[in-house]
Computed example of a mutant assay.
Amino acid sequence: MATLSSVQTTLKLQSADKGKHVSSRGYDTEAKDGVNNIAMGIYKHPYRLPKFVDPYIKRDWLLNQMAGAFRVFAKKGFCEGPAGHISVRDPIDPQTFWINPLAVHFSLLTPQHMVHVDEQGNVIGGNRTTINAAGFKIHSTIHKTRPDVNAICHVHSKAGKAFAALGSHLDMLNQDACIFFKNHTLYNDFGGVVLESEEAKHIAQALGTTNRAIILKNHGLLTAGSNVGEAAYLLCLMDTCCDVQMQVDSVQASGRYRRDVIPDQEAKYTYDMTASAENLYSSFCADYEVEVASSNGALRSATSYHTD
């Protein structure tokens, strides 16, 4: 067991030992990239992020991931009429993006359904049909202000809407919640359905320059990432964390139980070890492959894009 002196010594060394993460229990673990923190064995992780030379193949991968994410969302009950969108920055023309068509059930979406739009909302390719105006306003504004964001997910899920009405951040109540440690925020306002550019700008400003998730008060949840799997997994996980926090609060209100929150240092350590873009992508791919297997050939396996 680590002693207090050993912990203090380790913490003093932290600043001089870049690349290591130290928990308050004194364990120092070399930081690794991608899925290497959680994967052991002699083979490469089957769901590591693929590398692309051809942007057209990358576009195909992104659109497959996008359609698969919608089908995962459908299984989780996130489909709510015309509400809910995923957008993906186009790898060939990064000033444009792809978004889902209006009023098609998430469970039916395929790569061929997706609509290619420019910064002004003009349909320039793909499935030339109608899109959600509010969805375009939100997603286009975030894509413009956050060049690091390639994928954005937004849904009106049941737990997300309930938690969003409370005007609260997520607490670090469990290991999974730590994936949002100091990496999510709250838009503590509601300006009505987002049909005006000003409201979309307020949401983008509230998301900030580094956060990957935001709780939209009286509205729902939105997540962003460098790839579709990252943003989609964050969305599913955030919805679950909202649900769990409300359950914990309802039980704790009886006064019989103590509500324990993970301390910042342990939460940061867990975040650093689990919240990389590649790890979140690989976590999403397990659900994605279920949709591939049941899609009757509409979706391509994530592993089919690996060249090594």
Rank of each mutant, 00 (worst) to 15 (best):
E266A: 14
A67N: 10
V115H: 03
K144E: 15
N174I: 07
C178R: 02
F163P: 02
Y27G: 01
G297S: 03
P111C: 07
N188T: 04
I99H: 11
G255R: 04
A302P: 10
L49Q: 11
N122D: 14
V248D: 01
P147T: 02
V117M: 05
Y305Q: 04
K32N: 07
V35P: 00
V244G: 01
K18V: 12
A39E: 04
K76I: 02
W98K: 04
S24M: 10
G126S: 12
R146Y: 14
Y288A: 05
T129Q: 11
T96L: 02
G225N: 07
L235Y: 01
V290A: 01
H143C: 04
L108F: 15
L235D: 05
V7Q: 09
G81L: 15
L170H: 06
L234W: 02
H113Q: 06
G135Q: 11
H184W: 07
E198W: 00
P46T: 07
G255D: 09
D93F: 00
S304K: 09
S295F: 11
I262C: 10
L109T: 08
D118K: 03
S295K: 07
P101K: 06
L109K: 12
Q247K: 15
H45K: 10
L237A: 08
V193C: 13
H306I: 04
P91T: 05
S226N: 06
I179S: 06
K217F: 01
A253G: 05
F180L: 03
C178I: 04
N218L: 08
N218K: 03
E80I: 03
S294Q: 14
C241G: 01
P147E: 11
H113E: 08
